[in-house]
Amino acid sequence: MVDLSQTYTAPRRLAGAEGAKPKRRLSGNRIMIYGILCLISLYYILPLWVMVMTSLKGMPEVRVGNIFAPPVEVTFQPWIKAWAEACTGLNCDGLSRGFWNSVKITVPSVILSIIVASVNGYALVNWKFKGSEIFFGILLFGAFIPYQVMIYPIVIILRELGLMGDVWGLVLVHTIFGMPILTLLFRNYFASLPEELFKAARVDGAGFWGIFFRVLVPMSLPIFTVAMILQVTGIWNDFLFGVIYTKPEAYPMTVQLNNIVNSVQGVKEYNVNMAATLITGLVPLSIYLLSGKLFVRGIAAGAVKG
């Protein structure tokens, strides 16, 4: 018999990678990639830079200075004016009125549309009824009809309901228009959850609402976040429905921003316009920043399965 210990001794350490992780050298490829990324970032950042800088300058400086230069004398006057003093039509209380109008429109629209769509999606996945697929098909079809076609019919419907010009009329419109895409989102997410979980809950005696609120909703935070972001940004940024279906006192912020920026009387106050635009964009922006990771997770979870 061969004595193994004689013929073969394992090296104490195997040859190969040792020591600290080597630093990657910059190859030509990488320089290309980073270069392009920098250029694209610049392309997106420059306008924002110009806006922020301009909004912090006084009018005299705006007139003479280079638009890329930082302000010599920082002033927050344009921001204050945009928020509280700028005139639109008869009112001279700045964007603040529009901001609160937008809040009054967005909050109920988002909540209402998410509640209805999540229950829709849940029922379509877990409580299939005869014709539920057709129902879903029709709902999806709604997503492909151009908005413009529906503007006038909706005017008539709102008038008949007595909601024309009212904030609640606009809430109703936003809720309905959000329905197809949100239902799809929730349906796909709930379909990706294990079916046996739903079965187990039924055996445990939970009903339609019990399963929804106590089993499914607690494990669906990511998709609710995605839905909220989609709706908040979509509704906050809406201009068309706002201008058509509300009266001047109830105009949302976007419409008021337009009225400030496009007002024809007097000199163009670029600094105020920039500040006003930034204030208007701040809400969707902060929503993105605050939800960060959840948003990515939700998108990844809800997007794929059909």
Binding site: P194, E196, K199, A200, R202, V203, D204, G205
Partner: peptide, 18 residues
Amino acid sequence: EPSERGIGMVFQSYALYP
């Protein structure tokens, strides 16, 4: 209804409420 039948069920994937 499942809950009225006097049955308990155990699934392959455990199906615990996470």
